[in-house]
Amino acid sequence: TGIVNVSSSLNVRSSASTSSKVIGSLSGNTKVTIVGEEGAFYKIEYKGSHGYVAAEYI
């Protein structure tokens, strides 16, 4: 489990890349469940599926 540490919002992406499609966003202080790690990204549970967020902001 981690907490989103941004002042505005954090993009949730379809894969572990900044060039991948943005599938949603999370606001600051949102609690997320981390299920894996790929490079600089965490794989998280997101809306019944999975998404990827930049690990530096969690």
Rank of each mutant, 00 (worst) to 15 (best):
T1S: 11
T1R: 10
T1L: 11
T1I: 14
G2P: 04
G2T: 06
G2I: 08
G2F: 08
I3R: 10
I3T: 09
V4N: 03
V4L: 05
V4F: 05
N5S: 09
N5G: 06
N5K: 12
N5L: 10
N5T: 11
V6S: 13
V6D: 05
V6E: 06
V6I: 13
S7E: 10
S7G: 11
S7H: 12
S7F: 08
S7Y: 08
S7V: 12
S8N: 12
S8E: 12
S8K: 12
S8M: 12
S8H: 15
S8R: 13
S9Y: 11
S9C: 15
S9K: 12
S9R: 13
L10R: 03
L10K: 02
L10I: 15
L10E: 03
N11A: 15
N11C: 15
N11T: 13
N11R: 13
N11F: 10
V12W: 01
V12C: 03
V12G: 01
V12F: 00
R13L: 15
R13C: 10
R13P: 01
R13E: 02
R13G: 04
R13I: 06
R13K: 06
R13M: 15
R13D: 02
S14C: 13
S14Q: 14
S14P: 03
S14V: 12
S14M: 13
S14N: 09
S15T: 10
S15C: 11
S15G: 12
S15Y: 07
S15D: 10
A16V: 05
A16T: 06
A16P: 14
A16H: 05
A16S: 07
A16L: 04
S17L: 07
S17P: 01
S17I: 06
S17A: 08
S17F: 05
S17N: 12
S17R: 07
T18W: 13
T18Q: 12
T18Y: 14
T18D: 13
S19K: 12
S19E: 12
S19Q: 11
S20L: 02
S20C: 06
S20T: 06
K21Q: 10
K21D: 12
K21T: 12
K21R: 12
K21F: 08
K21I: 10
K21A: 13
K21S: 11
I23R: 02
I23K: 03
I23M: 07
I23H: 01
I23Y: 01
G24A: 04
G24E: 01
G24P: 00
S25T: 15
S25G: 06
S25W: 14
S25Y: 14
S25V: 15
S25H: 13
L26M: 05
L26N: 00
L26K: 00
S27D: 11
S27T: 12
S27Y: 09
S27E: 13
G28K: 14
G28M: 12
G28H: 14
G28A: 14
G28V: 10
N29S: 09
N29K: 11
N29R: 11
N29P: 06
N29W: 14
T30C: 12
T30I: 08
T30Y: 06
T30G: 05
K31G: 06
K31T: 12
K31F: 11
K31W: 13
K31Y: 12
V32Q: 00
V32M: 03
V32L: 05
V32G: 01
V32H: 01
V32I: 08
T33F: 10
T33L: 09
T33W: 10
T33Q: 09
I34V: 06
I34H: 00
V35W: 06
V35A: 05
V35D: 02
V35S: 04
V35N: 03
V35C: 09
V35T: 07
V35G: 01
G36A: 09
G36M: 06
G36K: 06
G36V: 04
G36N: 06
G36F: 05
G36L: 05
G36Y: 05
G36R: 05
E37F: 14
E37I: 15
E37R: 15
E37V: 15
E37W: 14
E38A: 07
E38P: 01
E38M: 08
G39M: 04
G39W: 04
G39Y: 05
G39R: 05
G39Q: 04
A40G: 14
A40M: 12
A40C: 14
A40W: 07
A40T: 09
A40S: 10
A40D: 14
A40P: 14
F41H: 04
F41W: 14
F41D: 04
F41Q: 02
F41A: 02
F41N: 02
F41E: 02
Y42R: 03
Y42F: 10
Y42D: 03
Y42H: 04
Y42P: 03
K43N: 03
K43A: 05
K43H: 05
K43L: 10
K43V: 11
K43R: 08
K43M: 10
K43C: 09
K43Q: 07
I44T: 01
I44E: 02
E45G: 03
E45K: 09
E45M: 11
E45V: 12
Y46M: 03
Y46I: 03
Y46G: 00
K47Y: 09
K47G: 12
K47I: 06
K47E: 13
G48V: 03
G48D: 09
G48F: 05
G48C: 07
G48K: 06
G48S: 07
S49H: 10
S49Q: 12
S49V: 11
S49F: 10
S49E: 09
S49K: 11
H50D: 06
H50W: 15
H50P: 05
G51F: 04
G51V: 03
G51Q: 01
Y52A: 00
Y52E: 00
Y52D: 00
Y52S: 00
V53Q: 00
V53N: 00
V53M: 02
A54Q: 15
A54K: 14
A54G: 07
A54D: 11
A54F: 14
A55T: 10
A55R: 15
E56L: 10
E56P: 04
E56T: 07
E56M: 11
E56N: 07
E56A: 11
E56G: 07
E56H: 09
E56F: 08
Y57D: 08
Y57I: 03
Y57G: 09
Y57L: 08
I58E: 01
I58D: 01
I58Q: 01
I58M: 04
